[in-house]
Amino acid sequence: MEIKSVLNNVEDAQSATAFKDSANEPEKKSFIKKIFGQSNLGDFIFEKLTLLFAVLVFLLVILMAYEMYTNSRLSIAKFGWGFLTSSTWDPVTEVYGALPVIYGTVVSSLLALLIAVPLGLGVAVFLSEIAPGWLEKPLSFLTELLAGIPSVVYGLWGIFVLVPWLRDSIEPFLQDHFGKLPFFQGAPYGFGMLAAALILSVMVLPIISSISRDILRSVPFTLREAAYGIGATKWEVTKLVLSNARSGLLGAIMLGLGRAIGETMAVTMVIGNRPIISASLFDPSYTMASVLANEFTEATSDLYMNALIELALVLFVITIIINMFAQLLVWSMNRKWKKG
């Protein structure tokens, strides 16, 4: 009897503590929840860690902008907005105006896009919609290979192949036939805006085409099926696929533009490096990235260095503006299509 009652007591005590534990547990949980906003420690760490990385990227951008701003204060104080609107870039008299190089950067990049976008989209459509399997794989490989060539190699190719070819054949031809247009005037040197735009377009082409191809492929097959099912021709199906993928395609183009604007080496080698604004594509020009690469080591005075860093800041801001503009475009397109 005694033993039994003792056992009973033990059991009672056990069940009591068990009950107590289970009663305590929710309290504990809510305690953790109160502090961390999460009941699971692993998830908590994971969430905060990824948040930290995201914040780091943001901070890095802010920090870069801040550093560039503080290190260009001399030049900002001296020239103000005139830095953006003046066309004189003269280290000897310490007068710095960035307009010609901004012009050179924007125009060479846009010209490159003008050539590369239709070509790149054409390649992407062919690879994803039309090419048979045995042709598609080697072609995809080759376009991706183009993206991996170092830019100095493009630059060398530009100097030894592209520039002589432009000088001896293309530019004289354009001058003979379209010489009345302001774009094709002056002496055909080979080095200049046209060479830079062409070489940039070759460099940007693989980026636009391979990203666009991936985006077109990600358009669900059911959509193509639906279109074929109502009697659409291949061209009509492709148009539909393109319109469904448009925001992604715009993103691909913007990545290409980003590459073109920031490209330094190849452009520096063929553009002629003279800060002038000319409508003629034969004339030399200069880009922000090229100025930075060429003149950084020669910047002996503080003002010169400050002006160069301000130029970097302008390049930075222009890139951000272009990306924001692209986002806006995507956003307005999506809204329009939702409205129907």
């Binding site: 959509l223 099926e225 099912g229 469904n244 409205k339």
Partner: peptide, 24 residues
């Protein structure tokens, strides 16, 4: 193309064109 206009098809998963309005 002409055959598919004479013989319409309804698929397993509903596949309306997402970028178009109901009318379109």
């Amino acid at each position: 193309v002409m055959i598919r206009r004479k013989i319409g098809m309804v698929f397993q998963k509903p596949n309306p064109f997402p970028t178009m309005s109901i009318f379109n």
